[in-house]
Design a binder for these strands. Sequence first.
DNA 1: TAGATTGTTAATCGATTAACAATC
DNA 2: TAGATTGTTAATCGATTAACAATC
Lengths: 212, 212
Amino acid sequence: MERKEISKSVLKRLPTYLNYLNSLPKDAATYISATALANALGMGEVQVRKDLAQVSDGGRPKIGYLRERLIEDISQFLGYDNTTDAILVGAGKLGQALLGYSGFDAYGLNILAAFDANITKPKEVDGKPLLPMSDLKDFCRENKILMGIITVPAASAQQVCNKMIDCGIKAIWTFAPVHLDVPENILVQNENMATSLAVLSMHLQAQMKDKK
Amino acid sequence: MERKEISKSVLKRLPTYLNYLNSLPKDAATYISATALANALGMGEVQVRKDLAQVSDGGRPKIGYLRERLIEDISQFLGYDNTTDAILVGAGKLGQALLGYSGFDAYGLNILAAFDANITKPKEVDGKPLLPMSDLKDFCRENKILMGIITVPAASAQQVCNKMIDCGIKAIWTFAPVHLDVPENILVQNENMATSLAVLSMHLQAQMKDKK
DNA sequence: TAGATTGTTAATCGATTAACAATC
DNA sequence: TAGATTGTTAATCGATTAACAATC
């Protein structure tokens, strides 16, 4: 499959497909059609077909896609086949939850270590090192870390972000609900719980109104 | 301000504005313009202006918006002024992290209790009750719970979801990476970490390619 | 062959951006 | 008055959906 430019909206749907495909039992049908996928996920079948066409050319009329081949194609497209090493800063509850979560392997993400401003002596959490901030730079250099995860309070997020960039990090996944200023070549992905809550809140408001 | 229909994309940006406004010090300028907001958040100024126009009519040419009034208007629009009580199912690490997070008040969300299949005797975590699943229905009825948070493994998410709906819950916030089948009047908001990872992964792949 | 499914090309829809008049 | 900012109306852009030809 030749690599094309892909829009962000398509990109965001790909993990959903992949996830569903991976959840199917080993002895499920060998082939799966875009239509079947669409129905299972409650999406438009044309949309799914078009999305799949962008990452795989294994689709055969009347038959569909070879299931395992499709999983492979999407995984490869998303870069899940070669793991990315990451570090995490902020070992509070959320940070530790992420650190201990084993499901990231499936996405090619491997959190090597956590750092925290309140740590002075190296520790271990869930078998992973928890180190003082002063070790950050050396660690990143030595392990050629490109991805950083921020789970510190909003007030210190920008400062941590700057440090990460200084350590050579190129992609930042942040859970702090603030806008981070970064140079152009750095990507910040904000895991914004607030937007989800807004959508939920609006739905409940609308429901209440209907009841009246 | 009269309530208009609002698009989902605008809705999702509102919390960002609100968050920034709230982060300003008490003694900041009394007025703030859409332009200033846009610059601070790295967004288009026309977009911000149009968004604000939909939730507030306090904008004055040459001057901008009264900061406190704008905070009030957005908060009210998003329904953050009257709190929503919620329950959480799945008291693993993530579940406990959410349960103990105090920042949800600002979004009008109050997690009253957590439930878990592995609990037989009532406990307490961070001062909040952790109860067996068998208590779920009564608890929801008694407290008129409309929102549920799912932090169980993917395999049991649909089952938990069904139970929630059975308990009268109308809005579900789920962290399990699976598609949930629900009736039309129920809203499911999937906090999809996988999509964020996909975006990050693509960025790193593109960076690697550029380097070659 | 007939029918289901793919991939492509065109039409629609919605959201963003640009241009401009109104106003303090 | 002059200039900055608002809100609105029109133009552009991108993404989704619909229609259809190709194919196994």
